[in-house]
Amino acid sequence: MSSHAILTIILYIAILLALSYPLGIFIDRVMTGEVISGGGLFRSTEGFIYKVCGIDPRAEMNWLSYALGLISFNVLGVVFVFALQQLQGFLPLNPQGLVNISPDSSFNTAISFATNTNWQAYVGEGTMSYLTQMLGLTTQNFLSAASGIVVVIVLIRGFARHSLQTIGNLWVDLTRITIYVLIPISIIYAVFLVGQGAIQNFDAYKDVKTVQITQFDNPQLDAAGQPIKDEKGAVITEPATTDQQTLPMGPVASQEAIKMLGTNGGGFFNANSAHPYENPTPLSNFIQIISIFLIPAALCFTFGRMVGDKRQGWVVLVTMLLIFLVVTCVVLYFEQQGNPILTNLGVNGSMGNMEGKETRFGVDDSSIFASITTLASCGAVNAMHDSFTPMGGFIPLWNMMLGEVVFGGVGSGLYGMLVFAILAVFIAGLMIGRTPEYLGKKIESYEMKMVAIAILVTPTLALVGTAIAVMTSDGVAGIANPGAHGFSEILYAFTSSANNNGSAFAGLSANTPFYNSLLAIAMWFGRFGVIVPVLALAGAFAAKKKISVNEGTMPTHGPLFIVLLAGTVILVGALNYVPALALGPIVEQLMLPVIH
């Protein structure tokens, strides 16, 4: 591994811990309702929202009311974003005169942004008006991030409370995390990005003459805008040249900040964080990867403080860091080796596999970014994962298959990891014949049913969705690369959607009614099929009595539990997918020497 990569990872972990620790303490204070000193403006804004919306901040909810409120809130978000896209041609802040979005694409995008997935079948700069980007997509970036965080806070409250039927007030939790945490950090972050060169304006797109004439292969499109293929399934292209380029403009920095901080990942532009207006410099790239893990790491510290045992938070955090280190080293190794097929064609492979990567970032920063963005359910990309080597591309795919629990999405990563912790305790209890308990709460039949639903729903959606797609003509029609790689493209799309990651392997033409509908199902139920049982767990734990530590209690704050938790995540989380992986990236890797 290169010295640059090693130094980047060391610096990354050091800065991440230095920033996330105080943030974790702050989130604890915000979510336990402490008065934040110097927060007069925030307090008055909070009070104003309660007054306008008729919210009694002292009223608490049981878990079912909390869940129904959260589901309704997010459905309203879906309806709003759907309607906005359907009407954007008639609305302001649309200097390019972009037309209304097709119903299936609007539906997919609305579900995608409300579920914190940010899967993008559309091309942002080619289809979305500034109003849609800001009022629809950026707003959902905040609200979906807040939705994830409040769910984990409620689960932690469930552990911390005892003999209570209530778990908090949804509207208070959503308001406080948005006002005190997400918006202030995003404002500072957006200003930093503008300083680095990210754009923030409402100008019309600019046409410029390029320095050189560019030659390219232009894919031929049919009447529906889909690429025409020959009988072998390859896209038919025709040679073309141009000396003109259109530079898209827009309010990019403000969307970029929450896109990374909220682990949303939906880029303003199609090229996402590979676009110089979204991610202009190596420094902005480094800060972007810091911001992806910032809140998920901070929530581990919040967890430790809220349950009254900081070691519990460290155990979860160290488990995440260990898995992160291993998978990142693997993807770095394979990408630094280069692509033997390209080397055989005479391409200089000394810099590693540079296909699909920005020269500004190179192999190291692209590989580290890919690992982080797929471990977290961010999904932003600064390189094309489709162009990674087979095993280099395997890791981002496998990272998502872990269930987005290694840091994961804001809130969703930690609640997913805590579900695995309950499972780990249960398995250990079975092995040694003791009644399992975690953080002073007995794990009984109902809790295990909820854990089973939460863990099994995403692999089911991903694998059944992939199976349907490869068995139907509509599904196969979207593949750009026939064979094992084409299978990987479909598997990646459904894994990314069901786990609410949102990154794309590229190469799959997914903006069709078939994929827009099927992936929307995966995204919605991948999100709420987990949130609902997690909230049920929170309610069940809050109602239980707290039992004191005794000689039969399995310690969950030491190295042994780190090993047990990591093993549970890897075995249970990822083994579901092994047969599918064998048909995609693994067989592709095994075929490399043959092609070579």
Binding site: I71, V78, S106, I111, F528
Partner: peptide, 30 residues
């Protein structure tokens, strides 16, 4: 066509609410 997808949203809503109520019933408590 838009109404079809709007209908999908309502179906998603109903199914998710059903899941929540099913989980509550499974535990015999809310």
């Amino acid at each position: 066509m838009s109404l079809v997808y709007f209908g999908y949203i309502l179906i998603f809503f109903a199914l998710t609410v059903g899941l929540a109520k099913g989980c509550a019933r499974l535990g015999g408590k809310k």
